[in-house]
Amino acid sequence: MPGPLANIMQLQNKVKTKRISSYDRTGGNKDFIRLAPGETVELASIEGAGIVKHIWMTLNTQDKFIRRNAVLRMYWDGEEEPSVLSPLGDFFGQGWGEEYNFASLPLAAAPHQGRALNCYFPMPFGAGARITLENDSESELASLYYYIDYERHESIPDSLGRFHAWWNRELTEVRPEEGETEWGVVAPQGNNATDRHNYVFADIEGKGHFVGLNYYVDSPGPMWYGEGDDMWLIDGEDWPGSLHGTGTEDFFNSSWCPNEVYSHPYFGYARVPDKLGWMGRTHCYRFLLEDPVYFDKSLRASIEHGHDNSLTLDLATVAYWYQAEPHKPFPAIANREGRANMKPIGFMDVHRWRHAWRQSMGGGATLWGDETKTEKKE
Rank of each mutant, 00 (worst) to 15 (best):
S159N: 02
Y199A: 07
I234E: 04
G236K: 03
D229G: 03
W224P: 01
T246R: 09
G226F: 00
E182M: 05
E177C: 04
E173M: 11
V186G: 00
L171Q: 12
N214T: 12
W232A: 02
I204K: 04
M231A: 08
D218W: 12
R169A: 14
H164W: 02
D238T: 14
D218R: 11
H164G: 09
S155Q: 14
F210C: 05
D238L: 14
Y199R: 07
F163N: 06
N198P: 02
G206T: 02
G208V: 09
E173Y: 03
N198Q: 10
D149F: 12
E227P: 13
K207L: 04
G190W: 04
V185P: 01
D195Q: 05
G245N: 07
L171I: 14
D195P: 02
T246I: 10
H209I: 10
Q189N: 06
G221I: 11
G247R: 06
P240N: 09
G208M: 07
T181Y: 00
D149C: 11
G206N: 02
D235Y: 13
A202F: 06
T181F: 01
G241A: 07
S219L: 05
E180S: 14
R175D: 11
I156R: 02
D229C: 09
G208R: 09
N191L: 10
G190K: 05
G184M: 07
E180K: 01
W232L: 11
G208S: 08
L213S: 08
W239C: 03
K207V: 02
E173L: 12
G245I: 04
E178A: 03
M223F: 13
N168H: 07
P220T: 07
W224A: 00
M231G: 03
I234H: 04
N168M: 10
Y225R: 00
V174E: 01
G161A: 13
E180F: 00
D238Q: 15
K207S: 11
I156L: 10
W183V: 00
D218E: 14
G245C: 04
I234S: 08
G241T: 06
L233Y: 13
S242L: 13
I156T: 06
W232S: 01
E178G: 01
W166L: 15
I148C: 03
W166D: 13
D218C: 11
D218F: 09
A193C: 05
H164Y: 08
V217A: 03
E173G: 01
Y216L: 12
G184A: 03
L243G: 01
V174S: 06
H164V: 05
I204S: 09
G190F: 03
D203H: 12
F201L: 05
D149L: 09
P176W: 07
D158Y: 02
P157I: 03
M231I: 14
W166R: 15
E227N: 13
G226K: 00
H153D: 01
L233F: 10
N168T: 15
W166T: 08
Y225W: 15
W232I: 14
E205Q: 15
V211A: 11
H244Q: 10
G228A: 04
A187I: 04
D218V: 08
D158K: 12
A165L: 10
Y150K: 04
D235L: 13
V186T: 15
G206F: 02
K207M: 05
G190P: 07
R175M: 07
N214V: 13
M231V: 12
M223Q: 12
Y215Q: 01
D149K: 12
H197N: 14
D203M: 06
P222F: 13
R162E: 08
G228S: 00
H244I: 09
E177V: 05
